[in-house]
Simulated scan of single mutants.
Amino acid sequence: MPEHKGLVLIAEDERHIADLQRRYLSREGFGVHVEADGTAALSAARRLRPVAIVLDIALPGMDGVTVCRRLREDGDWTPVVFVTARDEVADRILGLELGADDYLTKPFSPHELVARVKSVLRRTAGPGQDPVRRVGRLVLDTGRRTLHVDDGPLELTTTEFNLLAFLMRNPGQVFSRDQLLAQVWGYADYRDTRVIDVYVSQLRAKLGEASPIRTVRGVGYAVTDGTR
């Protein structure tokens, strides 16, 4: 399994448009989660921590403008690409004032959507990150996809590596099983979140006392400089 680019949340109530967006983003290596109304989209954004949100303004239940406003009030600055059937200057200004990162007017090419998502991710990522991560006794190189423990190499499966790499890129942050499924596997199948426990158990068995993975009871997992 190649390293995933992260989960994109699509909030779109027109199913054929959402399916098209999902297909093209998936081809580019993104995981995709779709919600058809604003209330569900806001909940999914808070629960899954997507890398970007494609947000239709005219959503049922809660419109996209309100969704974006609620996220920004929470201090959540996940990149947002607004989508609307209207092409009015007032809508664009309102979206940008709320902290949207880009704006697309229907109809648009799915290729353009992919390009816009990639663009906002580049703009918000800042300078290129060092591919080498050091936590405790572990040195992980995402470029070479190698792991060393106490200067000795350790072999991991592709999925084990991707999970450990994600946690080590976000030291100290606690992630729920739902969030890890979304970010590492690129989907959110809430019926099977215990697969995370299996992979964490395998990682701990291989890393032994050098394991930096901490269980946060009732929440999920985090990487710290300490041991288990």
Rank of each mutant, 00 (worst) to 15 (best):
residue 80 V to F: 11
residue 80 V to Q: 06
residue 80 V to I: 12
residue 81 V to W: 02
residue 81 V to R: 02
residue 81 V to L: 07
residue 81 V to Q: 03
residue 83 V to K: 06
residue 83 V to Y: 06
residue 85 A to E: 02
residue 85 A to R: 03
residue 85 A to M: 02
residue 86 R to H: 09
residue 86 R to E: 11
residue 86 R to I: 02
residue 87 D to H: 04
residue 87 D to P: 03
residue 87 D to R: 00
residue 87 D to W: 05
residue 88 E to Y: 10
residue 88 E to R: 13
residue 88 E to W: 10
residue 88 E to F: 12
residue 89 V to T: 12
residue 89 V to H: 13
residue 90 A to K: 14
residue 90 A to R: 15
residue 91 D to V: 02
residue 92 R to C: 10
residue 92 R to F: 15
residue 92 R to P: 01
residue 92 R to V: 11
residue 92 R to M: 14
residue 92 R to I: 10
residue 93 I to Q: 09
residue 93 I to P: 03
residue 93 I to L: 11
residue 93 I to S: 04
residue 94 L to M: 13
residue 94 L to W: 09
residue 95 G to E: 00
residue 96 L to G: 04
residue 98 L to F: 07
residue 98 L to E: 00
residue 98 L to W: 05
residue 98 L to V: 03
residue 99 G to M: 10
residue 100 A to G: 08
residue 100 A to N: 04
residue 100 A to K: 06
residue 100 A to F: 07
residue 100 A to S: 05
residue 101 D to A: 14
residue 102 D to P: 07
residue 102 D to I: 12
residue 102 D to L: 09
residue 102 D to R: 06
residue 102 D to H: 10
residue 103 Y to K: 02
residue 103 Y to Q: 04
residue 104 L to P: 00
residue 104 L to H: 00
residue 104 L to S: 00
residue 104 L to M: 00
residue 105 T to S: 01
residue 105 T to N: 02
residue 105 T to E: 01
residue 106 K to R: 01
residue 106 K to V: 01
residue 106 K to S: 00
residue 107 P to G: 01
residue 107 P to F: 01
residue 107 P to S: 04
residue 107 P to L: 03
residue 108 F to G: 01
residue 108 F to S: 00
residue 109 S to V: 05
residue 109 S to G: 09
residue 109 S to E: 05
residue 110 P to H: 01
residue 110 P to K: 01
residue 111 H to V: 15
residue 111 H to K: 09
residue 111 H to E: 14
residue 111 H to Q: 09
residue 112 E to P: 13
residue 112 E to A: 08
residue 113 L to N: 05
residue 113 L to D: 02
residue 113 L to Y: 00
residue 113 L to S: 06
residue 114 V to G: 05
residue 114 V to R: 09
residue 115 A to D: 11
residue 116 R to P: 07
residue 117 V to S: 04
residue 117 V to E: 07
residue 117 V to T: 05
residue 118 K to H: 14
residue 118 K to G: 14
residue 118 K to E: 13
residue 118 K to A: 12
residue 119 S to F: 07
residue 119 S to W: 06
residue 120 V to L: 13
residue 121 L to W: 12
residue 121 L to M: 15
residue 121 L to V: 08
residue 122 R to F: 11
residue 122 R to D: 08
residue 122 R to K: 15
residue 122 R to E: 12
residue 123 R to G: 07
residue 124 T to C: 13
residue 124 T to Y: 07
residue 124 T to H: 12
residue 125 A to E: 10
residue 125 A to H: 14
residue 125 A to D: 08
residue 125 A to I: 10
residue 125 A to G: 14
residue 126 G to M: 08
residue 126 G to P: 11
residue 127 P to T: 14
residue 127 P to W: 14
residue 128 G to E: 11
residue 128 G to R: 15
residue 128 G to I: 06
residue 128 G to Q: 13
residue 128 G to M: 11
residue 129 Q to C: 09
residue 129 Q to A: 14
residue 129 Q to Y: 11
residue 129 Q to L: 13
residue 129 Q to I: 11
